[in-house]
Amino acid sequence: MLRLTNVQKYYGGFLAIDIPSLFIEEGLWWVQGENGSGKTTFLKMIAGLHPFNGTISLNNLTITKQRQQFVKLVNYAEAEPLYPSFLTARDLVELYCQTKGGDILFAQELLKQLHVFDAYTQSIGTYSSGMIKKVSLALAFIGQPKIILLDEPLITIDASAVNAICTMINDSYKKGVSFIITSHQAVRSEQLGFTGKLLVENRTIHKNSE
């Protein structure tokens, strides 16, 4: 599904990540690593937010050559999302549905499940950080993604939202959507049944051999 070849990420002259070769099959993957190990950088490169050297391809579509088709299949939710304060959740949902080709009613249903739909037409500036996080998570499910990247999806949000997001992940996974999730939280296996782990250490990423 997702193939990374000779991927290198430099910050100035500092080599932050070096992945000679990595193939990630369809599944529910848990990315683990210490703070600053490069988990977020890894997700941002796949999401198209960070430039890098090398090739990242998804089902033979590469992000550098077929960017538009690629990002249509890859959705991403940041750990600490930041949106213009004058926008409303409705503005963002409409923008995502328009560009990613999603269904507004489906997005609204996700917001209802996360108990944030009441503020649908309020500006983001009035939201708490938890509410912004919930909107960002709902946006990541819009469209027809093949893979969804979630950076620390379980922090900031309340316990009922954690259960709701786990249900949303499991439902989408059953429909064939893969996930790459970073989380420092201990996740119970009945909440999310991970296919395997991706370990970020020594500036590279490899699948857990356990």
Partner: peptide, 16 residues
């Protein structure tokens, strides 16, 4: 500066 700070997410949107 605004684009840099607040519209980073839009790079993940399929806009040519």
């Amino acid at each position: 500066m605004f684009e840099d700070e607040y519209l980073q997410f839009s790079k993940n949107l399929p806009i040519t």
